[in-house]
Computed example of a mutant assay.
Amino acid sequence: MILEIDSVELSFDQKKILYGVYLKAETGKVTGILGRNGSGKTCLLRILFGDLNPKYKNIRIDGKYLKTKLFTTNSIAYLPQHKLLPGNLKVRKAFALFRVDWHDFIGQFDSFSSYADSKTSELSSGELRVVETYLILNSGKEIILLDEPFSFVAPTYVEKFKLMIQEKKKESAILVTDHFYREILDLGDTIYLLKNGSSKFIQSKVDLENEGYINFNLQQR
């Protein structure tokens, strides 16, 4: 499955946010999206998901124009930046609702075993992010959108998720945004940088340095 988006025009208060974007994601690959705060990364994922309506957009699946919103097709799962799960929901109940095996989860993240009957509001930001990311990655959807999945997450868990993403991409097209460019460079089979409303294809760290996304001198210290 190949997912493409272009011809996007999005403005807020007459300020153009996105207007020269092309992005392609496909089953078997991780598509990484980089960009500074305010560059439109989250907006682009929301447009793909279907809960943000730009002035113009052209979304295609396998070359065919998509006439409906992707979230109505039951083929997409989206991890937003903000909290996904309600605070009064018990952790194990969330797994039941998502039809994801709790025992498989604690087999990989054993420190969470004591949280089965805890409310999600009782978890730390990093712990909640682990639970939510795991649920979305194991949703079985053809398209998975992950908006900064590694925020507040312990490095050990980040490495586990990177391995999981590499495994899950065999059956899904996965799009990942993050501020941690090293993780995106490591994970991404295809990488785009959002800058000045447009997307730029990135092949290496040097491209990010040339685009001013990385301060080269700072990296050499």
Rank of each mutant, 00 (worst) to 15 (best):
T31C: 02
S113H: 11
K69M: 01
K41T: 12
D117S: 00
S39T: 06
F95N: 10
F49C: 07
S11Q: 14
R92F: 13
T27K: 15
D62T: 01
F98I: 10
K67R: 13
K24N: 06
L18F: 07
S118G: 06
V30Y: 05
T27W: 03
K83V: 10
D51I: 13
K90C: 07
S39E: 11
K24T: 03
R60E: 03
G40M: 03
A25Y: 08
L44P: 10
V100A: 04
R36K: 14
G63F: 01
D104S: 15
K57W: 02
N37C: 09
S124I: 00
K55R: 14
K57H: 09
G87K: 06
A77Q: 12
K15C: 07
F49K: 00
V100L: 04
D117R: 02
V100H: 00
G35P: 09
G63C: 08
F105C: 07
R92C: 05
Y65I: 14
Q14N: 14
L23S: 01
I76K: 02
P86K: 11
L48T: 02
G32H: 09
G87A: 05
I61S: 03
G40A: 07
F109T: 01
D13V: 07
A116L: 00
K41L: 08
L45H: 11
D62F: 03
Y78I: 10
V30N: 05
A77T: 11
S121G: 01
Y65A: 06
K41Q: 12
Y19Q: 14
L48Y: 05
L23Y: 10
S113G: 01
G35F: 05
V100R: 01
V30K: 05
S125M: 11
G38C: 02
I33N: 00
G32I: 03
I106D: 04
G35V: 06
T42W: 08
K41C: 06
G107K: 12
S11Y: 15
K55Q: 14
Y19M: 11
G107P: 09
I33C: 03
E26A: 04
N88A: 12
I59V: 13
K41N: 09
L89P: 11
I47N: 03
K90D: 13
V30S: 06
V100T: 12
L66G: 01
L34V: 05
P80H: 11
L45G: 00
T68G: 03
S121V: 09
N53M: 13
T73C: 11
F112S: 05
F95V: 03
N58P: 08
I61A: 00
L18N: 06
L70M: 07
K15F: 10
S124W: 00
P54D: 12
K57G: 01
F95L: 01
K57N: 09
K90W: 05
F49H: 13
